[in-house]
Design a binder for these strands. Structure first.
Length: 1036
RNA sequence: GGGCCCAUAGCUCAACGGGUUAGAGCGCCCGGCUUAUAACCGGGAGGUUCCGGGUUCGGGUCCCGGUGGGCCUACCA
């Protein structure tokens, strides 16, 4: 055999090969994880072993109620789900390992528009011929399909939970609980019927939801400028400023609109309180003067649009008075409606802009959201003389009626209205003028939409509640104080520093608080069939809509047995025995209300349906954990429902996470490249998926199939979920590297154990064997890690867990394990220091498996499988409890280790030039030399050292340092990984000199030692170890 | 348009109520070991803490204003 190499020591041919006598690392635990293939096998095993059930049945230290926010049963799992579900599973598994009982009941949101739309797309016009129940059946099938798909996908990424009995909002029991929640609101007296403007498609005769809107980019609309004549109040107000002027002509306010058909419903003129308005003086064709009120910044544009060639802006001052007004000064002035006999007051609205129109906005509360809000704020009538078909009704005012537009479609009436305005002389521009702009149309018929006030059911935010724990307060008041109660609790928890509570991150409080404070009344009715009906009964005699707590509860009981289909199928049983109209007292004829509840009301009731009053669960729930969009959604609706049913928030803690986005690079102006997250909008995702496209190159389902769920889980854990989480190849490659590092150290620990059941640290102590100083230090480090990880988990800081574990593992690999190899391999198995180190390695691998189990359940189980088992050890890592290593102890070993590692660093630094062949403090010039092929060998060949153990060091340390090193004096050489070390104690600058080791090398442990026997080529330690080994292996 | 939030090394993140020379892990570069070997060890190079002001003895940290990004929401009369 020819060995080529610089310094490989070739043992004499006669020498015995001692390899067999070494205790080298050995384990069947594979380096390769092969996760994609093996994960399903573990899932299968856990299922067969009924791990989850046995966790629920074992004696618990308490209960942790974690309530799953229901994903919508529509479409495949995407990265947002992965992020959310993985975080949830971290919590579930961690709390379980703490010994608490965690019944995690996964759920799905099954009702609602998107599913109904899917079904509509699939069935088309045929759907029209079906009954409500038939349509509902189709929707149910659709929802069931996706529940099944998502259930499999969620389980595949390792989620632990009650998969055989999830909660579905479409189950009869759940539907009944929704109504019970509604009954609570009814009891409190805060449910009412009112008008609300909605987007309405006259072609389909239905209201449309936001998601059903499409926009026509170049829609042509009429453009009319209309003047409203000021009445006496205007004159009176202006006269103070311009005593003479107003005798010369009338004052008009000019408005602009693209919907002339809404003019009959005009109820006010809105101005911005801070905008500047001016009067234009103009003489009409008869030479009569008139004064036109418009916003100052728009005056010129209005004149152009109306063809006023010589309007004059009133001079800045006239008769000593300022002629410009601030909007505020106009409030309350009254102008005459352009054709009906009524007045339009000037009101304030902050949305009035100076970018288009006249700065004075025609306001019809029955025909626009802003207008509606303005109307409500100013006590205006919500008036909408338009029917389902989009045609004018008899409710029109007498003048408009006289134009013969009753029964005419509003858009068809537009030109006629413009003509009439022109005839009346109130139109400032020409009747045929139009503009092209973006306008909403129906997704199905593509016909333009109109805004129309319709009758809806509402929950009042500010009405005082009549009953319940907070009778006399409004829902908004209670909800806001609950938000603050949670925030205060969170602040307390932060001071304690142990376990986080309340709003996490704390900014969540600001968000939901702002939303609750600013939200309008809750519109809970929807004009659809796939949902839970609002069980109101309309009296056929007087038309009164009856909705009482007793009625709702009666229907709830019916739903509990037969499901919500009963509302559509059973016209008689829905009416309680002896039920009479609250208004007219008649009891013989009722029609059912055909609205369903907002799906947010349903999911907002989920804690009530799933947790409250349930064994192993309860109220309030410990934790809700969802994306930050749920401040508007589920957290929000759950809070409102909770305040109505129980008088408090249904959760103690709300954790929110950000969104998953694709990483993109952007070159900045200064040439630097900045990495940004480009979020993937939910709508884009749905759209792309519906076309069968991959949403991203990093499709999560594909990732699971190729790299395994574990990589995704680790990706989640390494990111700061409170912010948006990035998605890129670089990020995933890094996660895989992190994974390997953790896996490899676990593997090495298992290899060190070699499948042997070793003594525990406690057992060693009992046997009178003290841990070696390094072992003690490492064990202490492990105890610290475990304690800190527990805190991090309790604070939902999974990132910190991984960061600390990674650092721990990297440090152990680089120092403790590297150093201990010497005796682990070479000492006899029964030596105290091997026993001691093995006990620590055993503790390490066990603790790591359990600590990582919540985040890496598959890998932890893989490791656990190979941990040599003692009696009483659990068969699965997921049945284990959090490691108890005792409190970390301060044995002053930290200082010793710090000192020895500082010395090691100095030695390494001194060694480096001798190993590397050139000065370590080389600068750029040398680097270039090297690149140019310059002579590398700045050090004589005789000084070259290939490996630390071929070197001896002479180190000088201070007295203080020597004192610190004392506890480790026996293992300094090992810690430095050198052949030999001479430590001189000397005050002054410390120094290290490296020289080639001159002592003979032991062929077994390869260290250079004075005590190597020439004949055996073994050192004392190895001689002893081999002798004992030989005695134990007589046959060998 | 409004509300809330985010920005530190190539990547993922640290840096307790302002306080040494802004750290860690991974990646990258150079080298070693061949007894963790698709592993392991040593060394090294990477930062305008997004930009601009302000407060302060002192700013990654606090304040104001930008820029970029995200979530929610409103509107286009």
């Amino acid at each position: 055999m020819i060995t080529r190499g610089k310094n490989i020591t070739q043992p004499p041919m006669t020498a015995r090969d001692f390899k067999a006598t070494l205790r080298l690392p050995e384990s069947a635990f594979s380096m390769k994880a092969d996760l994609a293939k093996r994960e399903p096998q573990w899932l299968d095993r856990w299922k067969k072993a009924a791990i989850y059930r046995s966790l629920l049945e074992r004696p618990a230290k308490g209960t942790f109620v974690f309530h799953d926010g229901p994903p919508y049963a529509n479409g495949n799992m995407h990265y947002g789900h992965v992020l959310n579900n993985t975080l949830k599973d971290f919590v579930t598994r961690f709390r379980t390992i703490l010994g608490e009982r965690v019944k995690f009941v996964p759920g799905w949101d099954c009702h609602g528009l998107p599913i109904e739309q899917n079904v509509e797309k699939a069935f088309g016009p045929k759907l029209r011929e079906m009954t409500a129940s038939q349509r509902r059946a189709k929707c149910r099938e659709e929802a069931e399909k996706w529940v099944k798909v998502q259930s499999e996908q969620r389980q595949r990424i390792g989620m632990m939970g009650t998969w055989d009995d999830p909660y579905l909002t479409m189950k009869p029991a759940f539907e009944a609980r929704i109504l019970e929640a509604l009954a609570a609101f009814v009891d409190r007296g805060i449910v009412y019927r009112g008008l609300k403007p909605v987007w309405w498609s006259s072609a389909e005769r239905t209201a449309l939801a936001e998601s059903e809107l499409e926009y026509e980019e170049s829609h042509k609309s009429p453009s009319v400028y209309v003047r409203f004549k000021g009445d006496e109040s205007v004159k009176a107000a202006l006269k103070k400023r311009f005593p003479t002027m107003l005798d010369r002509g009338d004052v008009y306010a000019v408005i602009w609109t693209t919907t002339p058909w809404t003019l009959p419903a005009n109820r006010a003129l809105a101005v911005h309180p801070a905008m500047e308005y001016v009067l234009l003086e103009r003489s009409d064709s008869d030479g009569k003067l008139e004064y036109l009120l418009v916003a100052e910044p728009l005056a010129k544009a209005v004149c152009e649009a109306c063809g006023w060639s010589k309007p004059e802006l009133l001079p800045r001052t006239m008769h000593g008075a300022e002629t410009a007004f601030v909007g505020n000064e106009l409030l309350g002035l009254k102008f005459a409606h352009p054709f009906e006999d009524r007045e339009s007051p000037v009101v304030s609205a902050l949305y009035v802009e100076a970018t288009a129109g006249t700065g004075i906005v025609h306001t019809a509360p029955g025909h626009g959201r802003d207008d509606y809000n303005t109307g409500v704020a100013n006590g205006l009538e919500v008036y909408s003389p338009v029917d389902d078909a989009g045609e004018f009704t008899e409710e029109l005012g007498p003048v408009a009626k006289s134009w013969g537009i009753v029964g005419k479609h509003v858009f068809a009436a537009n030109p006629l209205i413009a003509e009439k305005l022109s005839e009346l002389g109130v139109l400032c521009n020409k009747p045929g003028d139009f503009i092209v702009h973006r306008y909403p149309i129906s997704w199905r018929s593509k016909k333009p939409l109109l805004t129309r006030a319709t009758v809806q059911w509402f929950i009042a935010m500010d009405e005082l509640m009549a009953t319940g724990p907070h009778a006399g307060k409004s829902l908004r008041e209670v909800a806001l104080s609950e938000i603050d109660r949670l925030a205060a609790d969170g602040a307390d928890a932060e001071r304690e520093g142990r376990e986080s509570r309340g709003w996490i991150p704390a900014a969540g409080r600001e968000r939901i608080h702002g939303m609750i404070a600013g939200r309008p009344d809750w519109c809970i009715s929807r004009q659809r069939v796939w949902g839970v009906p609002i069980p109101a009964l309309h009296c056929a005699h007087c038309g009164h809509a009856n909705l009482t707590g007793a009625l709702v509860r009666h229907v709830a009981k019916l739903f509990a047995q037969k499901g919500a289909d009963a509302w559509y199928d059973e016209s008689e049983s829905v009416v309680p025995e002896g039920f009479a109209c609250a208004q007219c007292g008649k009891s013989d004829s009722f029609t059912r209300d055909m609205n369903i509840l907002d799906v947010w009301f349903e999911s907002g009731s989920s804690y009530f349906a799933v947790c409250a009053d349930q064994p192993d669960l309860g109220f309030p729930v410990d934790l809700y954990l969802e994306g930050s969009d749920q401040h508007r959604g589920w957290f929000h609706s759950s809070l409102l429902v909770g305040c109505a049913t129980h008088g408090s928030a249904p959760y103690r803690t709300v954790v929110t996470h950000g969104f998953v986005g694709e990483k993109v690079e952007q070159r900045l102006a200064d040439g630097r490249v900045k990495t940004l997250i480009k979020a993937m909008h939910k709508r884009d995702i749905e759209e792309k998926r519906s076309r069968g496209e991959d949403v991203s190159v990093y499709d999560p389902l594909k990732m699971v199939a190729t790299d395994g769920a574990e990589i995704l889980r680790l990706w989640v854990a390494t990111n700061d979920y409170s912010d948006d989480v990035g998605l890129s190849k670089a990020a995933f490659d890094q996660v895989k590297d992190n994974y390997r590092a953790i896996r490899n150290v676990s593997r090495f620990l298992l290899q060190v154990l070699r499948g042997e059941v070793v003594e525990t640290v406690e057992a060693l102590g009992a046997a009178g064997v003290a841990l070696g100083p390094l072992d003690q230090w490492q064990y202490n480090k492990l105890a610290t890690l475990v304690a800190r990880c527990e805190t991090a988990y309790r604070q939902y800081d999974f990132r910190a867990v991984i960061a600390m574990v990674s650092e721990f593992v990297s440090d152990a690999s680089g120092f403790y394990l590297d150093v201990a190899k010497d005796w682990l391999y070479n000492d006899h198995r029964s030596s105290d220091r091997v026993r001691s180190t093995l006990a620590v390695c055993d503790a390490m691998v066990r603790a790591l498996a359990v600590v990582l189990a919540p985040i890496l359940p598959f890998t932890a189980e893989d490791v656990w499988d190979f941990v040599p088992k003692r009696e009483g050890d659990a068969s699965s890592v997921h049945l284990c409890l959090w490691p108890s290593l005792g409190a970390p102890q301060d044995l002053h070993l930290d200082d010793a280790v710090r000192a020895v590692r500082a010395l090691r660093e100095r030695v390494n630094l001194a060694l480096e030039p001798l190993v590397q062949g050139w000065g370590v403090e080389k600068k750029t010039a040398e680097k270039e030399q090297r690149a140019a092929g310059a002579d590398e060998a700045r050090w004589p060949e005789s000084l070259r050292i290939d490996h630390a153990r071929d070197a001896d060091a002479v180190a000088t340390v201070s007295k203080d340092e020597a004192t610190l090193l004392a506890p480790l004096s026996g293992v300094v050489t090992e810690c430095l990984l050198l052949g030999g070390v001479t430590v001189n104690v000397h005050d002054g600058a410390h120094s290290v000199t490296i020289q080639r080791g001159t002592k003979p090398q032991c062929t077994r442990c390869r260290r250079r030692l004075r005590d190597v026997d020439d004949s055996t080529t073994l050192c004392r330690r190895c001689t002893d170890a081999v002798a004992r080994w030989d005695a134990e292996h007589p046959s060998a």
